[in-house]
């Protein structure tokens, strides 16, 4: 892996429109039972413009954006040996139906430790007006080949 990629910022992803039914589907999949994920009236009563997404919903857009880095042939990461080590979200506000977002990925660090390639990325999720909504920090490890 080319460790000089640390600090590199990739161009913004294609816009993704957050939909009510996608939120419902994702909420069902992670056991998020709260009606604010499904019923716009409940979400509005809590002060949101529309149904809100579970916190980890952002992974849908941040992982596909970070894949541009992970699969970048110039980076040279052996992605067949990649394990997800850490994940963190810093959320300014929840995503809601109707948000049209783009993701800008930054390589936070790219290091080799004991033969393992450690890659940390940050995906900043922006709304259509340029508002930073949530940031997803992912750490991946590509394990050393055991000889």
């Amino acid at each position: 892996m080319d460790t000089s990629f640390a600090g590199r910022v990739y161009p913004p992803s294609q816009p993704y429109e957050v939909g009510r039914e996608k939120i419902r589907e994702f909420a069902d999949a992670v056991g998020a039972a709260h009606p604010a994920h499904r019923d716009p009236a409940v979400a509005r009563a809590l002060g949101y413009p529309d149904v809100i997404a579970p916190t980890t919903f952002a992974i849908i857009v941040t992982t596909s954006a970070a894949d541009v880095v992970v699969y970048d042939p110039l980076l040279g990461l052996d992605y067949t040996r990649v394990v997800h080590r850490d994940q963190r979200f810093v959320q300014r506000r929840p995503l809601h139906a109707g948000d049209v977002v783009t993701v800008t990925v930054t390589v936070e660090s790219a290091r080799i430790v004991a033969g393992n390639a450690l890659l940390s990325t940050r995906g900043d999720v922006y709304g259509a007006d340029g508002e930073l909504i949530t940031s997803a920090y992912a750490s991946l490890v590509s394990r050393a080949v055991q000889l």
Binding site: V30, G31, Y48, I52, T56, R85, D86, Q91, R93, P94
Partner: peptide, 26 residues
């Protein structure tokens, strides 16, 4: 697993939108 685990917090919180930060290691 990360998504399921957060339900403990949001059930208690009452409003699932009031999560400011959430991190785990696998």
């Amino acid at each position: 697993t990360m998504g399921q685990a957060l339900q403990v917090v949001t059930d208690w919180l009452g409003d699932p939108g009031r999560v400011l930060e959430y991190g785990v290691s696998f």
